[in-house]
């Protein structure tokens, strides 16, 4: 099967079969929307990790900034929702500029410096009461609008919006990966000096990846704000957004473009439908187990592991 056919089948399923089959079940559609939201952060996280070689523990920072920018633009400045969501991405990208001094830091220091930024943003959102409403949060954030007779404010409408956002993010990711920028970033992992010597400004490239990753995360955060119509700092900047995104990306394979999304859907749905039912309190223990197990037994993610198993079997059959 060629990739084009696979893609066509996927699109028909995602835009046709899934809504037809599950559209009548708001609970399940709600879960899928939440899993796609996490998928969006996860794709952005993996883009930074795979292309930029940087592990972030603070993507909640960009998620929260995006959510607040879009909510405030629509509520205080009267912007329409969709342009405000784009502006939220820009806002998150600008916020990422504030984190750029951290790019000079090595792996673990960068990861935790970004976490510090997330904390700072959360505290600022709590303290700047006149702008953000403080700890009480923002109520009745405008819902997604009705366009051409389609009500994007419904659960199913939200599904189409977040699905499109995530697929566009993945397309962008793939385009970057294929471009000379992607090639240079790939080469930087193992041959940093050699890459610089042929003219690559590695710090600048990493900075761009951080901005792209923040942009995507910000748009996803904005979507979520308009989807649930409510924000408070502890929710918008919750560490859980980062945790779920990391688990999804590691589980699905953060070196692939599709892995993080698949990981998010599987991890979130299994967590909510299965483990939450078995363990009402502390079901996230499963996320920790999953994360640890993946790092120890298949750091490349589950999908590459399955693919490798499958091809090995095929090879041994052929032999």
């Amino acid at each position: 099967m060629t990739n084009a056919i696979k893609l066509a089948i996927f699109l028909v399923l995602a835009y046709g079969a899934v809504p037809l089959a599950l559209g009548g079940n708001p609970y399940v559609i709600g879960l899928i929307v939440a899993s796609l939201t996490i998928g969006g952060i996860s794709v952005a996280w993996a883009l930074l990790g795979n292309l930029g070689g940087m592990v972030s523990f603070g993507h909640a920072a960009f998620f929260g900034v995006g959510a607040y920018v879009s909510a405030l633009l629509t509520m205080r400045a009267g912007w329409p929702v969709f342009p405000a969501m784009l502006a939220a991405g820009v806002g998150a990208a600008i916020a990422s500029v504030a984190t750029m001094p951290a790019l000079r830091l090595r792996g673990p220091y960068f990861a935790l410096a970004i976490l510090a930024y997330a904390e700072i943003f959360r505290i600022l959102a709590t303290e700047l009461k006149s702008v953000t409403g403080g700890a009480a949060g923002l109520l009745s954030i405008p819902r997604l609008p009705m366009v051409l007779g389609i009500d994007f404010g419904s659960k199913l409408g939200g599904y189409f919006v977040i699905l499109t956002i995530v697929l566009l993010a993945m397309t962008g990711y793939q385009l970057i990966r294929r471009s000379p920028y992607g090639l240079a970033l790939k080469a930087m992992h193992d041959s940093e000096d050699a890459t610089k010597v042929v003219g690559v400004n590695s710090t600048m490239l990493k900075a761009w990846m951080l901005m792209v990753s923040a942009f995507i995360t910000g748009v996803v955060g904005a979507f979520n704000a308009h989807y649930i119509n409510f924000l408070e700092p502890d929710y918008a900047f919750a560490g859980l957004w980062t945790t779920l995104a990391i688990v999804s990306a590691i589980f699905g394979g953060y070196r692939t473009v599709t892995g993080p999304l698949l990981g998010a859907v599987v991890v979130y749905l299994v967590d909510q439908l299965l483990f939450k039912a078995i363990l009402p309190q502390g079901h996230q223990i499963v996320l920790g187990v999953l994360l640890g197990a993946m790092i120890l037994f298949s750091p490349g993610g589950l999908m590459p592991l399955l693919v490798a198993k499958f091809t090995r079997k095929e090879a041994s059959h052929a032999a």
Binding site: G107, I246, I250, I285, G288, V289, G292, L296
Partner: peptide
Amino acid sequence: LISLIKKDRELNSLILTFGIGVILTNAMLM
């Protein structure tokens, strides 16, 4: 568990111990 990590220990151990932290937090919650 950390000693089982073979590759890229600096970053992988970060994610591993992050996972262990999540496990411990939720175990204590339970």
